[in-house]
Design a protein around this nucleic acid. Structure first.
Length: 313
DNA sequence: AAAAAGCCCAACCGCGGCCGG
DNA sequence: CCCGGCCGCGGTTGGGCTTTT
């Protein structure tokens, strides 16, 4: 039986969205929240199919989206995650809360793929060919694998970043503002869904991508705000690229970056040293427990351990 | 200054998974 | 258990913009 055509019906508008349509959609979502996309066209009068509405919202209108100007940090994170996760853009996007999967996908296809090809094929090692479908029984294992992979990716990315940008003053441009304030108002849609639902962090209920930069960002937020007043505001972002001036670095990357910057500033760190040590320990812990000793719940205990440590996921 | 080529990205398309009836 | 509908995802496209000749 053929799938009913979603957008083939007559009277359904296609193509670029107009500002008026955007306005209608935004005001609808503000009132009712994202979701139930099927009802959106009828209730708003938009001559768009539900799919188009959802896409427009998640890729363009959703608050907290950062567009264009990928930073080095984000780029490296994407490269690492792509190497580990493959073309699972939604999964990758869940580690870059301010980016949409579409954006990341486009950036990969237009910039990174070419760059990697030019820079040698070694880096472009194909991602793990994971089975397309996973039964319920495999879910947990896959969750664990994803956690482990993400952990490794973050660790590698951070290690690289540490080499590249030893002391990047925080742009202090308040990028976190719109993202943190607006984005979570109610956008369980699409790529950020797992990240959003994670704030309640029950690993079994959240998607497989539990370790999101959003959560890390939240975890570190307290420390960051303490440290920022000391360090960030002081210096002008002279070393920053234009992209960082206009958009700031990725919030998560900055959060992580600043966290690791604090690592070099014991005085600032002192009050929360134990917490930072905990996550550092978790992030940088030997992979032995995840790679080969699945049964023992290696990384699982890690994540749950972090959660149990009282991080405000 | 104009034309051509290349690039970028918003949006579309179709498939698969999930879930409720 | 099966079926149908909805949602989310990844791949692809095409129009507009930018750069090059």
């Amino acid at each position: 039986m053929g799938r009913p055509p979603c957008c083939d019906k007559e009277g359904v508008k296609k193509g670029p969205w107009t500002p008026e349509e955007d306005l209608v959609l935004v005001s609808y979502v503000q009132e009712h929240g994202p979701g139930n996309w099927r009802a959106v066209p009828t209730r708003t009068g938009l001559m768009r199919c539900s799919k188009s509405c959802r896409l427009r919202w998640t890729n363009y209108l959703r608050p907290g989206i950062k567009r264009g100007n990928f930073t080095d940090q984000e780029e490296k994170l994407i490269v690492h995650l792509q190497a580990l996760l493959g073309n699972r853009w939604a999964a990758i996007a869940s580690y870059l809360p301010e980016r949409t999967d579409n954006d990341i996908k486009n950036y990969w296809n237009t910039h990174l793929k070419r760059k990697l090809q030019a820079g040698g094929d070694a880096a472009a090692k194909p991602a793990a060919q994971r089975p397309a479908s996973s039964s319920k029984g495999q879910w947990e294992r896959r969750l664990q694998t994803d956690i482990n992979m993400a952990r490794r990716a973050l660790r590698e990315a951070l290690t690289t970043l540490d080499d590249i940008k030893p002391q990047q003053p925080d742009a202090a441009d308040g990028v976190n503002g719109p993202a943190a304030a607006g984005a979570d108002s109610g956008s369980p849609a699409a790529s950020s869904s797992s990240a959003a639902s994670l704030s309640q962090c029950s690993p079994s209920a959240a998607g497989p991508y539990v370790l999101t930069t959003a959560n890390i960002s939240r975890m570190l937020d307290g420390w960051a705000s303490k440290g920022r007043s000391a360090g960030a505001a002081a210096d002008s972002p002279s070393g920053s690229s234009a992209s960082e001036v206009s958009y700031g670095s990725g919030a998560a990357a900055r959060a992580l970056g600043s966290a690791f910057e604090y690592d070099r500033k014991p005085a600032v760190l002192a009050p929360d040293q134990t917490q930072l040590n905990a996550i550092e320990t978790w992030l940088f812990a030997d992979d032995n427990s995840n790679n080969d000793h699945h049964g023992h719940g290696g990384g699982g205990s890690g994540l749950l351990g972090v959660a149990a440590m009282g991080y405000p996921f």
